[in-house]
Simulated scan of single mutants.
Amino acid sequence: MTRMPPYQDLLTLIEERATAFREAVAVADPVARIPGCPDWTVRDLVTHLGGVHRFWAATVAAGPADGSPPAEAVDGSPPAEAVGGAPSAEAVGGGDPHGDLLEWSAESTRLLLDALRVAPPDQGCWTWWEASGAPMTAGAVARHQVQEAAVHAYDAQEAAGKAEPVPAAIAVDAIAEFLEVGLGSVGAWPHRPARIALSAVEGPTWLLDLTPAGAKANPAPSGEPVATIRASASDLLLFLYRRIGAEAVTVTGDRSVVDDLIAWPHSS
């Protein structure tokens, strides 16, 4: 596992990206479609992210547990946050917002941050990523929620016609977390084994091995990748999340393996 950023930095970044999210929502049409999630409107997106924040606030507050918190412990229903075990922003979760949309969203973020500030970063809690071997702690939840807020801030900005890159420092850690935690939770790779390199213009490169045992990030350096994806850290992250297409990145080597990766886990 890559080293997790400092806990307080993660909380600051959640607040920063959630604020950027609401700034974009404030100028977007509530019924405008989200290009990266075309079945959603802006209001759906707000409902989803608010539900995610309220769900994880209750989950962290509950401490170590064998399952997710019951619905009555959450202000709204638990969000559908995973598709095939991988992190996803593709299903509306949480209860319907009440009152002013932006105020409800801000209150949702406050509930999450309050729960995280009370919990030490090594406090255990339920998470959906047990299969990845990643920590099931408040710190790991905070790390994932930076990624969640960052991708949805991009979604809201795109709907408002003012999409901005994900800040590079956030994107670099989010890529590592996506590969290790998200893909590491999916299960068996359904295609022929392959190694892919993801190379950010800003410097970092990640290796990903895909085998019947699943996805393993940063494996032992033996063997060359069959394909390399190169772009800015922001574009690499958004490509992995299917927010932008292959035309936005540079692929060398076996492009079909990259196509299979982006389609996974839906193709399994």
Score class of each variant (00 low, 15 high):
residue 5 P to Y: 05
residue 12 T to K: 01
residue 13 L to F: 08
residue 13 L to Q: 11
residue 16 E to A: 05
residue 18 A to S: 06
residue 18 A to G: 04
residue 18 A to P: 05
residue 23 E to H: 05
residue 24 A to Y: 03
residue 26 A to Q: 09
residue 32 A to L: 06
residue 33 R to P: 12
residue 44 D to I: 01
residue 46 V to F: 11
residue 48 H to A: 12
residue 48 H to S: 11
residue 48 H to G: 13
residue 49 L to I: 02
residue 56 W to Q: 11
residue 56 W to R: 12
residue 58 A to V: 07
residue 58 A to Q: 08
residue 60 V to C: 00
residue 60 V to I: 15
residue 60 V to W: 03
residue 63 G to E: 05
residue 63 G to S: 04
residue 67 G to K: 12
residue 67 G to N: 15
residue 67 G to R: 11
residue 73 A to W: 10
residue 73 A to C: 15
residue 75 D to K: 07
residue 80 A to G: 05
residue 80 A to E: 11
residue 84 G to N: 07
residue 89 A to S: 06
residue 91 A to K: 07
residue 92 V to M: 04
residue 93 G to D: 07
residue 95 G to H: 14
residue 97 P to W: 08
residue 98 H to D: 12
residue 99 G to T: 14
residue 100 D to H: 15
residue 101 L to H: 03
residue 103 E to T: 10
residue 103 E to A: 10
residue 104 W to N: 09
residue 106 A to G: 09
residue 108 S to K: 04
residue 110 R to M: 13
residue 113 L to D: 14
residue 114 D to A: 12
residue 115 A to I: 00
residue 116 L to S: 13
residue 117 R to D: 12
residue 118 V to K: 15
residue 119 A to F: 00
residue 122 D to M: 02
residue 122 D to S: 14
residue 124 G to S: 07
residue 124 G to Q: 06
residue 126 W to P: 02
residue 131 A to P: 05
residue 134 A to K: 08
residue 135 P to F: 00
residue 136 M to G: 10
residue 137 T to P: 01
residue 140 A to H: 06
residue 142 A to I: 13
residue 145 Q to S: 14
residue 146 V to R: 06
residue 147 Q to N: 06
residue 147 Q to G: 11
residue 149 A to E: 01
residue 150 A to E: 00
residue 151 V to D: 01
residue 152 H to L: 01
residue 152 H to C: 01
residue 155 D to H: 12
residue 155 D to E: 04
residue 158 E to W: 15
residue 160 A to P: 03
residue 168 A to F: 06
residue 168 A to K: 15
residue 170 I to H: 03
residue 170 I to Q: 02
residue 171 A to Y: 00
residue 171 A to W: 00
residue 176 A to G: 13
residue 176 A to L: 04
residue 179 L to Y: 10
residue 180 E to Q: 07
residue 181 V to A: 11
residue 185 S to L: 13
residue 186 V to M: 02
residue 187 G to A: 03
residue 189 W to S: 12
residue 194 A to D: 14
residue 195 R to I: 01
residue 198 L to K: 01
residue 198 L to S: 10
residue 199 S to H: 06
residue 202 E to K: 09
residue 202 E to I: 13
residue 205 T to W: 12
residue 211 T to H: 00
residue 216 K to Y: 14
residue 219 P to M: 15
residue 221 P to N: 05
residue 222 S to A: 08
residue 224 E to W: 06
residue 225 P to R: 03
residue 227 A to P: 13
residue 227 A to G: 06
residue 228 T to S: 02
residue 231 A to T: 04
residue 232 S to L: 05
residue 233 A to S: 04
residue 234 S to E: 02
residue 236 L to A: 08
residue 237 L to M: 08
residue 238 L to Y: 02
residue 239 F to S: 08
residue 240 L to A: 06
residue 241 Y to T: 09
residue 242 R to M: 04
residue 249 V to I: 03
residue 250 T to N: 09
residue 252 T to E: 10
residue 255 R to I: 12
residue 255 R to M: 09
residue 255 R to K: 15
residue 256 S to M: 05
residue 262 I to A: 13
residue 266 H to E: 15
